[in-house]
């Protein structure tokens, strides 16, 4: 796949550089407009939208030893990443096998699906107060809520993935003497894998949404805590830093998951 991307660059030498240039130019113009609207022409109240300089100042403050909200940016980010990693991993470890089981066995589906249908309409964020009552403001409650949100897409997509496996492939494996365990391992799970990864991507997005919400409600550290404290302090520069940090962390984890996906699904035809 990579070699293909390279060769396509070779065929159209203008494409990528021009696109990149336009992208950089767009961002440059946006930054210029931002600067003009705030400190350049003072069109906007700095308490509504801070100037680029203020955001930079907030960033240097929180990323230096001085910190903000009780820790540096790196400590907050590490805390948030750690909670997302824990909640997401637990959700995947529990959700994917459950989805596979429900997809494979009609009996398991009949048994489990009612509970699932009952709990699914409750937005995960609505669990936050209960999680605080049960687990307090510490990490456990947040991991619990992330697990609840990230669990659902993992289950549903693993389930659908199994149901979408071509029955001819299963029949073919059986005629070659494959046992049920061999069919599951070599046919069903790899066949469901593309949709499993779709589920993981959705789960990861959901993990970040839930984490920020949970930290906004109450936390000692974390990027949500930065946003919350900055909101209370009416410190718009810091709010923007917090938002950007959440975006960067989310993008990095998504990118990592994408790399794993490309490796696991290397057999798929390049699109």
């Amino acid at each position: 796949m990579q070699s293909l991307a390279r060769s396509s660059r070779g065929f159209g030498p203008w494409r990528i550089p021009r696109r990149a240039l336009v992208g950089v130019a767009t961002i440059g113009v946006a930054l210029l407009l931002w600067w003009l609207a705030t400190s350049g022409l003072r069109l906007l109240n700095p308490l509504r939208l801070p100037s680029p300089q203020e955001v930079w100042a907030a960033f240097t403050q929180i990323s230096s030893g001085q910190g903000y909200g009780g820790a540096t940016l790196w400590q907050h980010a590490a805390q948030s990443l750690w909670l997302v990693a824990k909640g997401f991993t637990v959700a995947v470890i529990t959700g994917v096998p459950l989805g596979l089981l429900m997809g494979w066995s009609r009996r398991a589906e009949t048994l489990i699906n009612p509970i699932f249908l009952l709990l699914r309409p409750i937005p995960a964020l609505a669990w936050i107060p209960l999680a605080i009552v049960w687990f307090g403001l510490g990490d456990t409650g947040k991991v619990f809520v992330i697990w609840l949100t990230a669990f659902v897409p993992s289950v549903i997509n693993a389930f659908t993935g199994v149901r979408n496996v071509d029955p001819v492939l299963i029949a073919a494996a059986r005629t070659q003497g494959a046992s049920t365990a061999q069919v599951i391992r070599h046919v069903v799970i790899p066949g469901a894998m593309p949709l499993i990864f779709t589920g993981l991507r959705l789960s990861l997005q959901a993990s970040w949404t839930t984490l920020v919400a949970a930290e906004l409600v109450g936390a000692f550290f974390g990027l949500g805590r930065v946003l919350n404290v900055a909101g209370q302090d009416i410190f718009p520069g810091m709010i923007l830093v917090g938002m950007a940090a959440v975006a960067v962390c989310g993008a990095v984890t998504t990118w990592l998951l994408g790399r794993v996906e490309r490796r696991v699904l290397a057999w798929r035809p390049a699109v």
């Binding site: 001819v168 029949a171 790899p190």
Partner: peptide, 17 residues
């Protein structure tokens, strides 16, 4: 089904992975 009776399917039915 059993391996002493091999089947060739119209849709090939190869494992893509």
């Amino acid at each position: 089904p059993g391996p002493e009776r091999a089947v060739v399917f119209q849709q090939f039915a190869l494992l893509p992975w």
